[in-house]
Nucleic acid binder design. Sequence first.
DNA 1: CTGAATGTTCAGTACTTACTGAACAAGGTG
DNA 2: CACCTTGTTCAGTAAGTACTGAACATTCAG
Lengths: 205, 205
Amino acid sequence: MIASTAAELDSRRIEQKERIGLSHFVEEVGLMFEAVGLPRMAGRIFGWLLIANPPHQSMGDLVEVLQASKGSISTMTRLLIQISLIERVSLPGQRRDYFQIKPHAWSQLTQQRMTQITAFRQLAERGLNLLSDQPPQLRQRLQEMHDMHAFLEKEMPLLDQRWQQEQQRLTERLSTGQPHLTSSSELLPIPVSKSPRTETPEPKL
Amino acid sequence: MIASTAAELDSRRIEQKERIGLSHFVEEVGLMFEAVGLPRMAGRIFGWLLIANPPHQSMGDLVEVLQASKGSISTMTRLLIQISLIERVSLPGQRRDYFQIKPHAWSQLTQQRMTQITAFRQLAERGLNLLSDQPPQLRQRLQEMHDMHAFLEKEMPLLDQRWQQEQQRLTERLSTGQPHLTSSSELLPIPVSKSPRTETPEPKL
DNA sequence: CTGAATGTTCAGTACTTACTGAACAAGGTG
DNA sequence: CACCTTGTTCAGTAAGTACTGAACATTCAG
């Protein structure tokens, strides 16, 4: 099996090139995740799940493709599931579990942002209390901080709502009839286990 | 000067209590800044400038209040100026410079967020190119990522615009006639120096 | 000019945190 | 039951980065 046809070699070169393109993509998603405060490896996993074929991948797949340790993959998939960016799915008759991008994953990130905005608004309120006996001139800085985030708190959900409508419009353009990946296969999403860990993060310090 | 009146002691206790409240506030702004990917010390500076009286503070003030090194303050104020969250001001007849919160600082943070959104949209496009010969089902994940961020790219500026209007409405409620902190005093903002460093970051590696 | 006040730069450190790898569960399968 | 496959947990490390402190500029005062 030493000799290969020209076609085979060519096909391999193309595959090679694509592999490089794909891993670059994965790496960049990793960097973007870091930019929004999430671990790079979580971004790599998410990036790979964005382009993987099939869209559901096992832990073993991820370990191999991303050249990372089992431990890291296990921890990071758990994180991604916890923030609802991916979900765990199982195939009938298969022992191992698979991971795939969760529908509306991106709205979930917006949700996280909302939490931050609320925190900023509350912080502004605390500041205004501290300066309660000061003249309005001095309080103006905090008032602006407060009003801005109160505004966003009101508007962001509306924006997200409008996005959901827009998206429905967009997806109905072409793929009428096959509404979603999950339902197009025999994949079953596994509900997130409400383990005690979720509510009480540190059982033993 | 060993004896003090009860009133003096009381006033000191109150001051002490307020100092604690203020430094808690400063610390929490620091934590929030970390949550959005900026150095904690930058957040502390910004936090202090939100509540300081007067609103403009010198490097020496910051070093003392925040118990940080001159080096750290210098570096972080530079960072904050670069991302337009604060500005450097000078007083006539005063040698040293002062820093204060820049008007519309918060819109600036939104601006930073826009950059990220654009990066995400471009990344989605790269992914779609990589999967250009794949069936729509597989491309759907990236298509959603793309559409979502394209949507936000379109809508966020409009939102910010509406915020500017809203803000004007809100500030006109009370403080009619004194539109802004800067103009209410003899403070002169110092324009950001367009040093070569800005365009070519690493002159000598 | 000398000295003081103000500000910058940068080498070294201290700290945080992601990641590895190995030991440990938990099922299935023969 | 022994054994393999799949997945989790955790101690230790590796790597990145914010921060310190000291040396170095710069400008003003006497």
